[in-house]
């Protein structure tokens, strides 16, 4: 499974009503349920799925699916 597919699964656990294509376009502005609790849950799911602990200072920047994916790919590449 690709990184993108694994991240889609994480997002769909938090936003189960979104389809795959909607998840790919998801941003904190476009998804009404994307609040601080959803954000913390996403970070925990990403940690479980990819073994990556996101530094708290990065939280505010992670405003979209795309940004999450980019951070994951960059972190895994660096590792």
């Amino acid at each position: 499974m690709s990184h993108e597919e694994r991240l889609i699964n994480c997002f769909k656990n938090v936003f189960p009503e979104l389809r795959d294509d909607e998840v790919r376009r998801a941003t904190s502005h476009s998804v009404a349920d994307w609040d601080s609790v959803a954000m913390v849950t996403l970070v925990t799911l990403v940690d479980e799925e990819f073994g990556l602990q996101m530094p708290p200072e990065n939280f505010e920047e992670m405003m979209s699916f795309e940004l999450f994916l980019a951070w994951i790919q960059e972190s895994l590449h660096d590792a």
Partner: peptide, 10 residues
């Protein structure tokens, strides 16, 4: 795991 718990509930 949290993901398993959420998937199970879904």
């Amino acid at each position: 795991k949290l993901g398993e718990a959420m998937s199970m509930l879904r």
